[in-house]
Structures are given as C-alpha cells and as structure tokens.
Design a protein around this nucleic acid. Structure first.
Length: 200
DNA sequence: GAGTAGATCCTCT
DNA sequence: GAGGATCTACTCA
C-alpha cells in the first residue's frame, strides 16, 4: 500500500483526479484511533467557472481561502449547520479546484466508526457507515478543525493496487442552485457498491 | 416504499 | 438575515 504523493493532487485536471480517486483508500489516524475506507463516490468542483463551487467567479473569502492553496490540502466545511463535508483541494496555488469525497466502504476501525456515529455495535450493516458525505466525515472523525491539513500524515490517501471494475459517471447531487452546471457529468462512483449515496 | 419536515450554525450579503 | 455540496425520522399508503 503506497501513500499518494502531493504531485497526484497537483495535476490540472480535477475531473480526472476525481475519477482516479475511486477505489483509493482514505485513512485517518487521530489520537491513536485508526480508521480507513475505500473511496467509492466522488464529485469534482471545477473552480471559478463552476457555479456549484464555493469559489465560483473567483470568490475568495475566509472560508474558501483554503481552496486557493496547493493540491493535497483538506478543505472541510460545515453544511446545514450539522454536517462536516470533506474535500481534497487539487491543482496548484491560486486555482481553487476541489474533489468532494461522497462515500466510502469501511475497512479498518469499524467499531470506532460506529461509536462516532452513535450506532450500537452490529445494529446496522457496515456499508451504511460511510454512505454520504456527512456520515463519512463523522465516521472518520473529520471535522472543520481539520481544514487546511496536508494529506500526508493524520489524514492521507493510499493506493493498495485495487482497480475499480466499472466507474459510473453522473450529474452531481444537491447542487440544483447551480443552474446548467448542475447537469455536468462530474460525479463518479463505483458500479454496484452498496455504499454509494443518492439515487439508485 | 415514497415524500416531507426539522435540525442547526457558520458564512456571506 | 438568509440559506446551504445533508441526514434522519416520521407520516401516509
């Protein structure tokens, strides 16, 4: 299992990176609690030309400033006052591209994830633990305090040689406000995975 | 099984 | 002061 280098995220094609992240492993290690899962669903956010992106038209505020950093930085923000959403910043400095990680299949630390989600042990099948961006962040212990973290230490993404059998492309979820950009084929998921969120 | 309301708070206008 | 890259629980059928 090899850790993805920062150069993986510093490439210019955010849509390509989103596709390649399917099947990779997201691993967090906080306070000795190690949890990981295989990424099965992602969405690309294509910077200043993408109405669905927080950085659309070059909007740079305290919150979005993280997206203007170099690739391989974590961008975590609070949605609906409840959910912490985990993104990976891509491309180079001053280009605010990002990939939203939407779903994982749990691998290590399943009991820790259940504890974090307040699920009784064995009460729910494992594939529900990382189904959806809000739950995934909670299961892995990621919160807004981790925004700006470089993805090489307490949070990192690995390649264990797994090759996805079939990747499905679709429009993104929950971005109706983005008008015609909501239709863009920027969402990728692993065909047949039970952990994929959204419609069937 | 499908549809809907409510939670809840930070960020930007 | 409004609204959001969501999730759950509850209703009704």
């Amino acid at each position: 299992m090899t850790k993805l280098p920062l150069s993986f995220f510093e490439r210019s094609d955010v849509v390509q990176i989103a596709r390649e992240l399917i099947g990779k492993i997201l691993l967090t290690s906080f306070n000795g609690q190690r949890t990981s899962g295989r990424i099965v669903e992602t969405e690309a956010y294509n910077g200043i030309v993408d109405k669905a992106s927080h950085a659309y038209s070059g909007r740079r505020t305290n919150r979005t400033d993280i997206m203007f950093r170099e690739g391989g930085t974590a961008y975590v923000y609070l949605c609906y006052g409840i959910h912490h959403l985990f993104n990976v910043v891509t491309n180079t400095i001053n280009i605010p591209h990002a990939v939203l990680i939407r779903a994982i299949e749990p691998l290590e630390g399943v009991d820790i994830m259940k504890e974090r989600l307040h699920i009784q042990k064995g009460a729910q099948p494992e594939h529900t633990l990382g189904r959806g961006p809000g739950k995934l962040s909670k299961a892995l212990g990621i919160s807004t305090s981790h925004t700006g973290t470089i993805l090489q230490e307490s949070i990192a993404i690995y390649d264990d040689g797994y090759t996805p059998s079939e990747i499905v492309v679709s429009a993104r979820i929950g971005v109706d406000y983005a008008a015609e950009d909501a239709e863009l084929p920027y969402r990728f998921y692993l065909a047949g995975s039970k952990a994929v969120s959204g419609k069937k």
